[in-house]
């Protein structure tokens, strides 16, 4: 694994105070050199405070904007701060942080743009209702057909993206049903996707955004959204430049305060005191 690449773990959280701290700790254990960013999507509980206490970077939304907007804020952050790899991970403890490494390794070694963690690729017993699995199966097949590549777990929120994809997502990220729609978006932009098998825990806290009874309704809505997406104008395709260095903000001013605006502020502060 290339150690020089800067990695950002994006964890969108909405009222996940029970699990977010544990997720941060476990993530840090398995990936000590990665930065962890929690996006607090207008939580009414102490999600933000707990995340800060556990040493994560936190973006606070003043009100709930939905998972799509939260994820995009994460990608915007990753793009602005010049991260090479962004991994998205749920805050409810379903994703095992130990497997983030697997995602990143696959991303680097296989030269793909996005790596998707799938629950169903290998048929390990993952407890999930029958109706939901059936729905997933039909749904995945349709999406695989559109993308022209076999995908088994299109709603997986466990994925790693390279700088190209970070750039695209920071400019455009679907808001209604971000996980499957983002795949279609990437496919149309000419990016490569690879799926790998992962294990998942059953959830420890919080609620799924999709309940079993609503899964059929959800499926129909997502399919509609995807077909509408297909009709939309295609987004900017992959840039021909090998590496995109543009628009990376200089974050050093935060670190070495000696030669920066901070210095001036300090001097002003001292003058005021004197």
């Amino acid at each position: 694994m290339a150690n020089n690449s800067r990695i950002l773990i994006i964890i969108p959280a909405y009222n996940e105070e029970d699990t977010v701290g544990q997720v941060i700790e476990k993530t840090r254990q398995s990936l000590p050199h990665a930065d962890i960013l929690v996006i607090n999507d207008g939580s009414s509980d102490s999600t933000s405070a707990i995340s800060k206490r556990h040493g994560a970077k936190v973006l606070d939304f003043p009100y709930n904007m939905g998972i799509g907007a939260a994820m995009q804020a994460g990608y915007k952050f990753a793009y602005k701060m010049g991260y090479d790899i962004a991994v998205q991970c749920d805050a409810d403890g379903q994703h095992r942080p130990a497997q983030i490494k697997k995602l990143i390794d696959t991303l680097i070694n296989n030269d793909v743009d996005l790596v998707l963690g799938s629950r169903y690729l290998e048929t390990r017993r993952f407890r999930s209702s029958v109706s939901r699995r059936m729905g997933m199966l039909i749904f995945s097949n349709i999406l695989s057909f559109i993308v022209g590549q076999k995908l088994t777990d299109t709603t997986s929120g466990f994925r790693a993206a390279n700088r190209e994809v970070i750039r695209t997502f920071s400019m455009y990220y679907p808001s209604d049903y971000p996980e499957p729609e983002a795949l279609v978006l990437l496919h149309r932009g000419g990016y490569t996707i690879k799926e790998i098998s992962i294990n998942m825990n059953s959830r420890k806290g919080g609620y799924s955004s999709i309940t079993a009874s609503k899964s059929v309704y959800y499926m129909i809505k997502v399919m509609l959204a995807i077909f509408i997406d297909l009709c939309k104008k295609p987004i900017t395709t992959k840039s021909p430049k090998t590496k995109d260095e543009g628009n990376v903000e200089d974050t050093n001013y935060i670190r070495n305060g000696e030669h920066s605006a901070v210095d001036d502020c300090v001097r002003a502060y001292q003058n005021e005191k004197a």
């Binding site: 996006i39 936190v58 973006l59 003043p62 009100y63 804020a73 915007k76 935060i254 502020c265």
Partner: peptide
């Protein structure tokens, strides 16, 4: 705006801490 605000807020907090 919300996204930008949250990023700005983060940067401000960092600078404040450094300061």
């Amino acid at each position: 705006l919300t996204q930008e605000l949250s990023i700005m807020d983060y940067k401000f907090r960092e600078l404040d801490k450094q300061f």
